[in-house]
Simulated scan of single mutants.
Amino acid sequence: MNDKDKFLHPRSRYYGQVTPENLLFNANLQEFAQRVTFISCLETGGKLSPEQAYQEIRALWKQLKRSKKQLKIGEISISGSGES
């Protein structure tokens, strides 16, 4: 990745519980945050209407929720917990 890409698309290190699902969701979450920032800047600069910005962010939010559900993030696993 060159310097311009690192500047425009920074990635933060993940400090949570390391699982493939958590890492993938973290990447999705970082992309969501980045894209919301870009959309906000475009709206502030008059390149997008407030309604367009809202619709774009709403669509991104739905994608993030779908990702969370598909990756089963936040679901409590009963199997293997030792409880009956």
Results as ranks from 00 to 15, higher is better:
residue 58 R to S: 15
residue 19 T to Y: 06
residue 67 S to R: 04
residue 74 G to I: 03
residue 45 G to F: 05
residue 48 L to R: 01
residue 77 S to N: 14
residue 23 L to T: 01
residue 74 G to T: 06
residue 58 R to F: 14
residue 63 Q to K: 13
residue 69 K to R: 15
residue 17 Q to I: 12
residue 25 F to I: 05
residue 16 G to E: 05
residue 44 T to H: 11
residue 22 N to R: 08
residue 20 P to C: 04
residue 42 L to H: 10
residue 48 L to A: 00
residue 57 I to D: 10
residue 42 L to Q: 12
residue 30 Q to R: 01
residue 77 S to F: 09
residue 49 S to N: 01
residue 52 Q to E: 15
residue 51 E to G: 02
residue 31 E to H: 09
residue 72 K to G: 06
residue 34 Q to N: 09
residue 19 T to F: 02
residue 66 R to A: 15
residue 24 L to I: 09
residue 32 F to K: 00
residue 35 R to N: 12
residue 41 C to K: 15
residue 71 L to G: 08
residue 30 Q to F: 06
residue 52 Q to P: 05
residue 30 Q to P: 02
residue 41 C to R: 15
residue 63 Q to G: 06
residue 44 T to L: 11
residue 79 S to A: 14
residue 39 I to F: 11
residue 34 Q to D: 06
residue 38 F to Q: 05
residue 46 G to R: 00
residue 50 P to E: 12
residue 25 F to C: 01
residue 72 K to A: 10
residue 42 L to C: 10
residue 3 D to F: 02
residue 75 E to Q: 14
residue 21 E to W: 05
residue 58 R to K: 15
residue 2 N to R: 02
residue 34 Q to Y: 10
residue 28 N to H: 12
residue 34 Q to G: 07
residue 76 I to T: 13
residue 83 E to Q: 14
residue 83 E to H: 12
residue 6 K to E: 10
residue 46 G to F: 00
residue 19 T to P: 08
residue 67 S to T: 14
residue 53 A to N: 06
residue 77 S to T: 14
residue 43 E to P: 05
residue 21 E to V: 05
residue 6 K to Y: 04
residue 51 E to M: 07
residue 59 A to F: 07
residue 82 G to W: 03
residue 48 L to Q: 00
residue 80 G to Y: 05
residue 51 E to C: 03
residue 51 E to V: 08
residue 6 K to T: 03
residue 43 E to K: 13
residue 59 A to G: 09
residue 9 H to G: 03
residue 80 G to I: 00
residue 62 K to L: 13
residue 12 S to D: 13
residue 74 G to W: 04
residue 8 L to M: 11
residue 10 P to T: 06
residue 54 Y to K: 05
residue 20 P to I: 02
residue 33 A to N: 13
residue 26 N to T: 01
residue 22 N to A: 11
residue 50 P to C: 08
residue 8 L to S: 07
residue 43 E to D: 07
residue 26 N to F: 14
residue 84 S to V: 11
residue 74 G to D: 07
residue 2 N to S: 05
residue 43 E to N: 09
residue 37 T to Y: 10
residue 47 K to M: 06
residue 52 Q to N: 13
residue 52 Q to G: 03
residue 79 S to Y: 11
residue 69 K to F: 13
residue 51 E to Q: 12
residue 80 G to Q: 07
residue 15 Y to V: 09
residue 19 T to G: 02
residue 74 G to V: 01
residue 50 P to N: 11
residue 12 S to P: 04
residue 30 Q to S: 09
residue 46 G to N: 07
residue 11 R to M: 10
residue 49 S to C: 07
residue 65 K to R: 15
residue 1 M to C: 10
residue 62 K to H: 11
residue 15 Y to L: 08
residue 58 R to N: 15
residue 29 L to V: 05
residue 45 G to S: 05
residue 5 D to F: 03
residue 39 I to S: 04
residue 72 K to N: 11
residue 29 L to A: 14
residue 63 Q to I: 01
residue 44 T to N: 06
residue 76 I to F: 13
residue 54 Y to G: 03
